[in-house]
């Protein structure tokens, strides 16, 4: 009975919402680790080494995270295709901006930009990390992470691409975060609180990531 929820349109929305909230939790954790690089090379190296070598993080949480990312994107594109088919022939004139925000109407676009960014991000950090540990099996070095990070942000082009991508992430979160709670069924007095938290979170976290990227670009 419970599994049959996910065969329905509401169930598919629920899966999008839950996977989105899961990614928001991961994003928060990722930010909290990255921001330490601004204040302390030692703390950043310590946390990165822990995350990169703890077997639970590596072999349990990491596969769950990768599955969550892939699932959220695949489901998003799948639902977009279904939704477009539901319209059939489109309108000749459609004044969507008169009754809904650009952000809410273009989640697939902002999500698509974030997906492209993730390819670059994986190429920059995840692929070399996997190569270091599991392909070339190089010796463990707990102090290499900070140097690798600042090396990446020496390039102003990469720093700019990261910054623009985070703006699209902010747009995606501005609608997606609070919307996911509505899908879960939250409709109480707490919803206003969720909306306010969504606004602060969606601006603060991406802005923080932009700050980290620009900080290392300017300081090194």
């Amino acid at each position: 009975m419970l599994i049959s929820i996910f065969k329905s349109s509401i169930g598919k929305k629920l899966l999008m919402a839950l996977s989105g909230i899961f990614l928001v939790v991961f994003l928060t954790q990722h930010f909290l680790i990255n921001i330490t690089s601004v204040f302390s090379e030692e703390i950043f190296n310590f946390l990165s080494h822990f995350m990169g070598n703890n077997p639970i993080v590596q072999f349990v949480l990491q596969p769950i995270l990768i599955f969550g990312v892939i699932f959220h994107f695949v489901m998003g594109f799948y639902l977009e295709i279904i939704n477009r088919k539901s319209r059939g022939r489109g309108y000749t004139r459609y004044a969507g901006g008169q009754n809904a925000s650009w952000i809410s109407r273009n989640m697939i676009f902002s999500g698509g930009v974030v997906l492209l960014f993730l390819f670059l991000h994986f190429y920059d950090f995840w692929v070399p990390e996997m190569n270091y540990k599991y392909v070339e099996v190089l010796p463990i070095d707990p102090d290499r992470y900070y140097e690798e990070l600042i090396h990446k942000f020496e390039s102003p082009v990469r720093t700019s691409i990261y910054s623009v991508s985070f703006i699209f992430l902010a747009l995606h979160l501005l609608h997606g975060f609070s919307s996911s709670f509505k899908t879960i069924g939250v409709n109480s007095k707490y919803y206003k609180l969720i909306k306010s938290f969504t606004f602060i979170f969606s601006i603060f976290i991406p802005l923080g990531f932009i700050f980290i990227a620009i900080f290392h670009n300017l300081m090194h």
């Binding site: 349109s9 088919k85 809904a100 899908t183």
Partner: peptide, 18 residues
């Protein structure tokens, strides 16, 4: 009602509020 709605081929809500 949700089952019938899905069978009729309507799209999914994305909370745009339109």
């Amino acid at each position: 009602m949700v089952k019938q709605m899905d069978e009729e081929g309507f799209g999914n809500c994305t909370n745009t509020g339109a």
